[in-house]
Amino acid sequence: MTAAEPKRLLPAGTAARWPLTALDTGALPGAMPPGLRAGTLRLGVLSNANSGHNRRKLGRLEALARRYPHVVHLSTGHGDDVREALAEFARHGIDVLAINGGDGTIARVLGEILERQPFPARLHIALLPGGTANMTSDRLGVRGSLPRAARRLFEWTGGTGRDACPVLNRPILRVRFADGRDNAYGMFLGAGAVIQGTEYAHRTVHARGLRDNAGLTVAVARTLWGLRRGDPRFSRAVRLSVTADGREFLSARPVGVLMVSCLERLFLGIKPFWGPGEGPLCSTVIGPSPRRLFRSLPWLLAGRPTVAMTETGGYRSCRAYRLGLHLDGTLNIDGELHAVDSTNGGVTVDAGGTFNFLRL
């Protein structure tokens, strides 16, 4: 197989399955990102064949990759395929790893790199928007639609039009379960109405063809409206206890929404975090009946608390290096759902590692 030839880890025509159990500052400017050599860069592209946009556009991406001798493209399905693909990229000695998939795909691949360490050194990462939900690539990835972003990345790594490329150094959340199951990784963790919003998105929004920011916006708006009206489909509270760096932050209270992220800004640039403290983990808890939710919404999404957004009003936010969560219910980690039980010891969330993302 030459470097330009795509290799499939799935038989042709097979439908892949993908069971994942699992402020933009700090940019490093420069014509050549630190740690990358001049000239042509060997690029490995890992595509999730089941991700939203890839179901329709993967063939075009494969045809494009064949035109660039420095590009190795692998199409994967389930978790074991990811491990095999990363090992093959390591054998090719790639300089940059591109992940073509949604939020769950990105989380799975980055987690696999941290857990297995298949490469002798940490690679630069390029994210392509191939998924149904592309919040992570929207904030950290290559700009543009999937074909346009791929072409720009292929030409840039090939040395054509090698202009300045900011590098964003960002951590990734690591979620450790006290019951001993495998660690999960991601950029966003949610509970409460986030779960109902995710179910609504899968059931209604994505089924109508709305993806990316448009789909996320519709799902979030419907969830907020459900909270405002007390709709039981969106306002099922969960009892939650939280510790932040070993200190009690919340003690066995019903909450409507929990959000944790190492991205200070989420899709469309919203920033629903404002609390004190240090550390890479931003977290916000909103009660089941928050005071003046709709009136406070513009400031909530901008991370600028109003006089109504207090602890007694049902709003709390903080930063930390480590969070302990105890609840009975479900966690959403980059779109993948994980059932948790407080009697088994809860979960611990911290930064599992950092990556350099090429922001082309």
Results as ranks from 00 to 15, higher is better:
213 N>W: 13
147 P>G: 02
344 N>Q: 15
354 T>I: 00
278 E>Q: 11
72 V>L: 04
123 L>T: 07
113 I>V: 15
210 L>N: 12
229 R>L: 10
42 R>F: 03
44 G>C: 05
321 Y>W: 12
103 D>K: 10
185 Y>E: 03
333 I>F: 09
167 V>E: 09
85 A>R: 11
137 S>C: 06
67 R>P: 00
165 C>N: 07
128 L>W: 03
129 P>R: 13
272 P>R: 11
163 D>W: 10
183 N>A: 15
270 I>W: 10
202 H>N: 15
245 D>C: 06
85 A>G: 09
352 G>R: 07
254 P>A: 03
50 N>A: 15
274 W>Q: 05
256 G>I: 03
172 I>E: 03
3 A>L: 09
326 H>N: 11
253 R>C: 05
280 P>F: 03
33 P>E: 05
354 T>L: 03
279 G>E: 04
97 L>H: 04
68 Y>M: 04
28 L>K: 10
264 E>N: 13
89 F>N: 07
60 R>P: 00
128 L>R: 03
99 I>Q: 06
315 Y>F: 09
303 G>T: 08
98 A>D: 03
56 R>K: 15
138 D>A: 10
226 G>N: 11
128 L>F: 02
232 P>D: 13
337 L>Y: 01
115 E>T: 13
26 G>T: 08
303 G>Y: 12
267 F>A: 12
315 Y>W: 04
48 N>F: 11
168 L>C: 07
171 P>L: 00
295 R>D: 06
86 L>D: 06
52 G>R: 09
282 C>V: 00
35 G>R: 04
47 S>V: 09
67 R>V: 00
347 V>I: 12
202 H>K: 15
177 F>G: 07
359 R>H: 09
147 P>K: 05
203 R>D: 14
28 L>W: 05
99 I>C: 02
285 V>L: 12
246 G>M: 01
227 L>I: 14
